[in-house]
Every structure is written in C-alpha cells, then in structure tokens.
C-alpha cells in the first residue's frame, strides 16, 4: 500500500515516518514540507539517517496515493480538506482540525469557526481503544490530542465500570514534556529557561478538555497542565470521587476488564519495587498506555494514573494503529517496540 504524508518536518511527522518505515505492508511515496523542500528527510529527523533516501517535496507536487496522512499545524488541513480528499480514498489527520464532532464546540475551544464543518461528521475519532469497529469501516480518521488521550485513559476504566460519582468534580492534573510544543523555538523553550522548570502553562483550561468531554460524556471535568523537565511523555493524575462503597477490589476488576483485550494497555500498580505506578519515562517510543490507581478509602477519592508517550500513543502511534484497523492489517503491526530501560 502506498501512503504519503503532508507536513512531515515536525516531531509527530518524524515519528510517523519512523513507524511507517518499519511497516511491512506500507511504502512511503511522498513526504511534503513547505519549509524544507528538497532537503533529505533525515536532515529534519537525524534518527532516520540511512533509513530512507526520501526528500521533502512541495505540496503542489502531491500525487494520488492509497492513504494520506496529514500532519499540518492546527487550522491548515481544514482549509484544503477537499483537495486532499481528492488524492486518496483514506485520510488520517493528526492535527486537531477534525477531532470534534460538533462545530460549535470547536469554535468554543479554538476561538474561530471551523472552515469545513460539513466534513466533521465523516471523521472517526482516531483512538482505536474507543472506536475499533468504527475505524475498521472508516475512510477518514482524526488524530488524538496527547493530553486528552492520557486523561481519557485515566477515566475510562472507572467510567465503564460505572464507579464514578458524576455529581462530584473530576480534576485531571497533567504533567507534560517539551516535545508537545513542537519544534518551533521560542524564549520559553530556550534551554537555559526551560531546563529544570516546573511551569503551569495552562492552569485552568486546555483545548483537550473538549475531547475528553466528547469521548466520555462526563461534563464535570477540569484540566490543568504543568510542563516539567521531560522531552517525551505525559502523566495524567486524575482525582475522581467514586460512588459510595467502591472498594479496591472493585477498582482492580474495573482496570482488569478495561485492559483485558487491549494489546497496548498495561496495568501498573505494584506494592513493591520502584516502578509501582505508571511513569512515562520508560514509554518513550513505545505505543503502550500504562494505567494505575490508588484508592483513598477514607474519602472515596480514587487517584487514577495514566502514562504514555505524547508522540506515540498520543499522536503517531495511534495514527498507525488506526491505519492498521482501517486497512485490515493486524492492529499491532509496526508498533512492537517495548521502550527502553534504563533510559
């Protein structure tokens, strides 16, 4: 199968290329980048040196292919979605443009009207663990927000088991790395300023709240994002009040049920050792979602934890997983890397 990638010079694009190069059923035809036209792919992605001889092409040189990945900055894909759709029967857009079903909610969170609202209903939200069947039948899939994904996986085991007291507020405090900001430098990302900082860059609101509300139906959800000394990785700490009487055993049952048939979801809750709860550090480059929990029985508060790599399960990994489902390949193809330890 021939695939092409629009906007391949960013971090998520680079991760996607790395995965696709390792995919037996896929051959990359073209990778576009307006800023790096003519350069070799490895010049933007040094880990891919001698892995591909491809060079970045201009957007207007794009040829038809079997599946088109879009990894443009937010707001770009929606302007030319029809033009892209004419080039390939299937598309996966990693940006935020087609994640929300409701144009009004898009405008509320992204502060401008959607440029192609009629297309929104045609895109399936690209999180396989939530929309496996839909994706198998889908032509178009959106990517996932990395923070939203971590927040979703922290809530889903509890929600599916009906354990959440929806009257009480849910607080999700998310710790993130610097790669979420993309590869455009700024004073904020200047090393002497960024290294070792613990920065509350979105204390109350964040766009990814909209995806969590859409995909869980829970309304009383409150996000807060703090960036820490990390490049890849997200840790979501969700504070959730459970219905009266919920016990530790109920939680184990809920998390085990959720993870049972999911190849990439692992439960991390140990009583001994130094890896007792999910930690994104060891997930760099892997498509795993580690989930765990702790119950404060005295107050009925459960702290649900989720760790993942924002560039993998939070972006490129889920995109390839969605592609596998859409094209009938085994779901875990090209996603077998287990992460490194120590790192």
């Amino acid at each position: 199968m021939r695939v092409s990638l629009v906007g391949g010079s960013g971090y998520a694009g680079g991760e996607l290329i790395r995965l696709l190069l390792g995919h037996p059923q896929v051959e990359i035809d073209q990778i576009t980048s307006e800023s790096r036209v003519g350069e070799y792919v490895y010049q933007a992605h040094p880990n891919l040196r001698k892995q591909t001889a491809l060079q970045f092409t201009a957007l207007d040189q794009l040829r038809p292919c079997d599946l088109l990945f879009l990894a443009l900055p937010h707001g770009e894909a929606q302007k030319r979605i029809a033009q892209f759709a004419a080039l390939a029967p299937r598309m996966i857009d990693l940006s935020a443009d087609f994640r929300l079903r409701d144009p009004a909610r898009y405008e509320q969170w992204y502060h401008k009207p959607h440029a192609a609202p009629e297309w929104l209903a045609q895109f399936v939200y690209g999180l396989p663990e939530l929309h496996r069947a839909d994706l198998q039948a889908a032509r178009y899939a959106s990517g996932v927000g990395c923070n939203a994904t971590a927040g979703l996986f922290a809530l889903l085991p509890l929600q599916r088991a009906g354990l959440i007291d929806t009257e009480k507020p849910i607080v999700i405090d998310i710790k993130v790395g610097s790669s979420e900001g993309g590869n455009a430098p700024s004073l904020a990302s200047h090393h002497p300023e960024r290294s070792g900082s613990v920065r509350s860059f979105a204390p109350t609101g964040h766009r990814h709240t909209a995806e969590i509300v859409q995909e869980t139906g829970l309304a009383n959800v409150h996000l807060s994002i703090t960036s820490v000394e990390l490049v890849r990785g997200v840790l979501a700490t969700a504070h959730v009040w459970l219905k009266a009487g919920a016990s530790e055993k109920d939680l184990w049952k809920a998390y085990r049920a959720f993870a049972k048939d999911e190849p990439f979801v692992r439960i991390v809750k140990d009583k001994t050792g130094i890896h007792r709860y999910p930690d994104p550090k060891i997930l760099a480059g892997a498509n795993f979602v580690d989930i765990g929990f702790e119950l404060d029985e005295a107050t009925g508060r459960a702290v649900s934890l989720c760790a993942l790599d924002n560039l993998m399960k939070g972006a490129a990994g889920s995109a390839v997983q969605a592609m596998n489902l859409m094209c009938g390949f085994p779901e875990t193809t090209a996603l077998g890397f287990s992460g490194l330890h120590p790192l």
Partner: peptide, 25 residues
C-alpha cells in the same frame, strides 16, 4: 489484595507466592 486468580499445582503451607497482577507477597 486484588482478587486476581492464582493457580498453584502443589502448594505447601507457609509457602510464599507473589501475585502476578499486583505484586503482593
């Protein structure tokens, strides 16, 4: 601790086993 099912073929009284799910001794 976590309700996981643990199978043992010839268990001995006082034997220590680690739960495969939650690592409890």
């Amino acid at each position: 601790e976590c309700d996981a099912v643990i199978t043992m073929d010839k268990p001995l009284k006082g034997e220590i086993v680690v739960c495969p799910d939650c690592g409890a001794e």
